[in-house]
Structures are given as C-alpha cells and as structure tokens.
Amino acid sequence: MARKTFLDWPVIRQLRGADPTGRGTAVTSPRTRSTMPRTAEADGVVDSVCPYCAVGCSQRVFHKDGRVINIEGNPDSPVSRGRLCPKGAASEQLANSYLRQTKVRYRRPYGTEWEDLDLDTAMDMIADRFLEARRKHWEDEDEQGNPLRRTMGIASLGGATIDNEENYLIKKFFTAAGAIQMENQARI
C-alpha cells in the first residue's frame, strides 16, 4: 500500500485540481470511485408487488444465480412511486432467511418429532381433512327448516403476506365451500 503524503489530502487536491468547490473528483477517494451498487452485478430484474399489506407497492427484485440479491421500490409505480415502508424494504429476507422452511413439515397427532413430506402427499392430506370436516359438520337447515347450507367445521385465517387477489380467491373458495368463519390476520 502506497504511503499517503501531504498532497493526497482532499483539501489540497481540491485547491490544486479542477474541482475548487470540492463537490466532485477532489473529494472522492479511490475506494469510493471503485464502489458500485449491488444491483450492477444482477443477472436480471423482475417487477413484483410487496406481499405485506393491501397497498400494493411495486417492487423491483434483483436476482443473481437464482438468488434474490436486492429489493427496492419501483419508481414507475403510480401506487408507491419508488418508495417502500420498512417491512417492504426488508422483504428480501423472506426469500433469503436461513430460517425459511423450504420443505413440507408434518408432526403426527401426539407426536414429538417433525418429519418431511412430499408436496403431493401433504396436499392430499389437507384435501381429505377439509372434505371430511365439511361433510361431518354440514348444516343444511336449522330446527325451523330455514335453509343454512353451511359448515361450522372449517374456518379460514388469511395472512398479511397474502396479496389482495389471493385473499379474494380464498374468500370465494371458502364461501363456496360453505364456511362462514373467515378472518384475516391484518384485521386482528
């Protein structure tokens, strides 16, 4: 590493060079000039929507080698105009957290250990239990003969990381299935 001299001081560079106001090259170090944004090395960028609330802020998701490297607000969005709240700005952690589960985990009734299941098996188990609960708790009419056509055996609790469209479809699905107990975590 080269030893710095008196002439390397920024104020001396400022007075000797073509930058007397000290707003350009005179005050930038070689290290500063060599830095570049993380997004410059990205393989690509994809437009997305923040998953946290119903506002629908637009995001630009930068990826490299199949991994999310940065998420920032999309300046072309009429909703958020390039801004993200603290949760939206930190949503990169959703994809890259070491705590993120990437396998279906199942613990049998009265069991003490978790086991991995393949997705098809887990989906079949959920569908079977859903249909059984609906069938077992179906109420066609009340004591006076008034039509009910509902089930009290299933309920839905939506999450704040589900966007508006997904919540709309979930509401429609559970209503069609006869469920009347539907809530969303964002309201609680």
Rank of each mutant, 00 (worst) to 15 (best):
R3L: 10
K4D: 07
D8E: 05
P10V: 05
R13I: 04
R13K: 12
Q14W: 04
L15Y: 09
R16M: 12
G17V: 11
T21Y: 13
G24V: 09
T25V: 15
V27R: 14
P37I: 00
T39Q: 13
E41P: 03
E41C: 03
A42T: 08
G44L: 05
D47L: 11
S48T: 09
S48N: 10
A54N: 13
V55E: 05
C57I: 00
C57E: 04
S58P: 05
S58T: 10
S58Y: 00
Q59P: 07
Q59N: 14
Q59T: 14
K64H: 00
G66C: 01
G66H: 01
V68G: 00
I69W: 00
N70F: 11
I71N: 00
P75T: 00
P75A: 00
D76A: 09
D76K: 12
R81G: 06
R83Q: 09
G88I: 07
E92I: 14
E92Q: 11
L94Q: 08
N96M: 12
N96I: 09
Y98F: 08
R100C: 07
R100G: 07
V104P: 07
R105G: 10
R105P: 03
R107D: 01
R107K: 06
P109M: 00
Y110W: 10
T112Y: 02
E113I: 02
D116F: 03
D116L: 03
L117R: 07
L119F: 13
T121K: 10
A122N: 01
D124T: 11
D124N: 11
A127N: 07
D128K: 13
D128V: 07
F130N: 01
K136S: 03
H137C: 07
H137D: 11
H137M: 02
E139M: 10
D142K: 00
E143N: 07
G145I: 02
P147N: 01
R150D: 05
R150F: 03
M152G: 15
A155Q: 13
S156C: 15
S156F: 13
S156W: 14
L157I: 15
G159M: 07
T161E: 15
D163E: 15
E166V: 15
K172V: 06
F174N: 02
A176L: 10
A177D: 04
A177H: 04
G178Q: 05
A179W: 02
E183S: 08
N184H: 15
A186R: 11
R187V: 12
I188G: 09
